[in-house]
Lab assay of single mutants.
Amino acid sequence: MDETGKELVLALYDYQEKSPREVTMKKGDILTLLNSTNKDSWKVEVKITVNGKTYERQGFVPAAYVKKL
């Protein structure tokens, strides 16, 4: 869990989004878990840094590609 009590997951593999509802992640990324009720895909939040500014983006990733921490 992070400092706000949200559950975290670790990306086990790289994943490139295939639709606007998904998010891209790299192996080793730590993501905030938002919903894990679907056995196939979990909703997560990723933090992306562009030019020194951090943005948050929500979307789905394959459940088999992440592990709860």
Rank of each mutant, 00 (worst) to 15 (best):
F60M: 08
V9T: 00
D40A: 09
M1V: 12
L33Y: 02
T54V: 13
S36C: 14
L10N: 02
Y55F: 13
M1H: 14
T4N: 13
K39E: 10
K53H: 12
L33P: 00
V44W: 03
V44D: 00
A64W: 10
W42M: 01
A63Y: 03
K18Q: 13
D14P: 04
G52A: 04
G52Q: 04
W42P: 00
G52S: 05
K47G: 04
E3A: 14
M25H: 01
R57W: 06
K47V: 11
K26S: 07
R57I: 09
V23E: 01
L12T: 04
Q16L: 12
K26M: 08
K26Y: 09
K47F: 09
E56Y: 15
I30C: 07
T49S: 10
L12W: 03
T4C: 15
N51R: 08
V50A: 10
T32M: 10
S36H: 08
L10W: 06
K6G: 11
K68A: 08
Y13Q: 12
T32V: 15
G59Q: 01
M25F: 13
F60R: 02
K26R: 12
L69A: 03
E45T: 09
K39G: 10
D29A: 06
A64F: 08
K43Y: 15
I48F: 11
S36A: 12
V46E: 00
I48Q: 07
T32S: 07
V44C: 03
D2Y: 13
M25C: 05
V61D: 02
V50P: 00
E22V: 04
N38T: 05
N51H: 09
W42A: 00
K47C: 12
T37C: 14
G52Y: 03
Y55T: 10
V61Q: 00
L34R: 02
L69R: 00
K6C: 15
K43G: 04
L31D: 00
R21D: 15
V66L: 15
I48R: 08
K27C: 07
A64M: 11
V61N: 01
F60G: 00
T49A: 07
Q58M: 07
I48A: 06
K18A: 10
Y15T: 01
R57C: 08
L33F: 02
E56F: 15
Y65G: 05
R57D: 00
N38M: 09
E17V: 05
T24A: 05
V46M: 10
N51W: 06
N38P: 03
R21A: 12
Y55D: 03
P20A: 11
G28P: 00
L69F: 09
D29W: 14
F60I: 05
A11Q: 01
E17D: 03
V50R: 10
E22L: 04
V9K: 00
K43W: 15
P62W: 07
N38D: 14
K39C: 12
V61E: 00
R57V: 08
K18I: 06
T54C: 12
Q16A: 11
K18W: 03
R57L: 08
A11W: 04
N51I: 03
L69I: 14
E22R: 04
T24E: 02
D2V: 14
Q16Y: 14
K67S: 09
T24S: 15
E3I: 13
L10A: 05
K6V: 13
P20I: 09
L31E: 01
L34F: 03
G5M: 12
K68F: 09
G59K: 00
E3C: 15
N38K: 07
T32L: 14
L69Y: 08
L8Q: 09
N35G: 05
L33V: 05
G5P: 14
S41N: 11
M1G: 13
K67G: 06
Q16T: 14
M1K: 13
I30V: 10
P62R: 05
T54Y: 08
K27N: 03
N51M: 10
E45M: 15
K27I: 05
E17A: 15
A64G: 09
N51K: 08
V9N: 00
W42E: 00
E7G: 11
V46K: 12
Y55M: 10
A64C: 15
V66F: 07
V61G: 00
V61R: 01
E45D: 03
K47I: 12
T37N: 11
N35R: 06
Q16V: 14
K26T: 07
V66R: 02
P20D: 11
T4D: 12
A64R: 13
T32F: 09
V9H: 03
T32W: 12
K67I: 14
Y55P: 00
V46G: 04
G52C: 06
I30T: 04
R21K: 11
K68G: 04
D14V: 05
P62L: 07
K47H: 10
Q16R: 10
I30M: 05
P62I: 08
D29F: 08
T4A: 12
N51E: 10
L10D: 00
K67N: 04
V23R: 01
V23A: 03
L69C: 13
K39N: 10
D2P: 13
Q16G: 06
E56P: 12
L33Q: 00
N35E: 13
P20C: 11
V46I: 15
G52M: 04
S19I: 04
A63R: 09
E17W: 07
S41L: 15
L34C: 06
E56N: 15
M1F: 13
I48G: 04
L33D: 02
L34V: 10
R57F: 07
G28Q: 00
P62Y: 06
T32Q: 08
V9F: 04
L10Q: 10
T54D: 07
V23G: 02
V66N: 00
G28D: 04
T4E: 12
A11G: 02
L10M: 14
K39I: 10
L10K: 06
T49Y: 11
W42T: 00
I30N: 01
E3F: 14
E22I: 03
D2R: 12
P20V: 09
E3K: 13
M25R: 00
I48Y: 13
T32C: 10
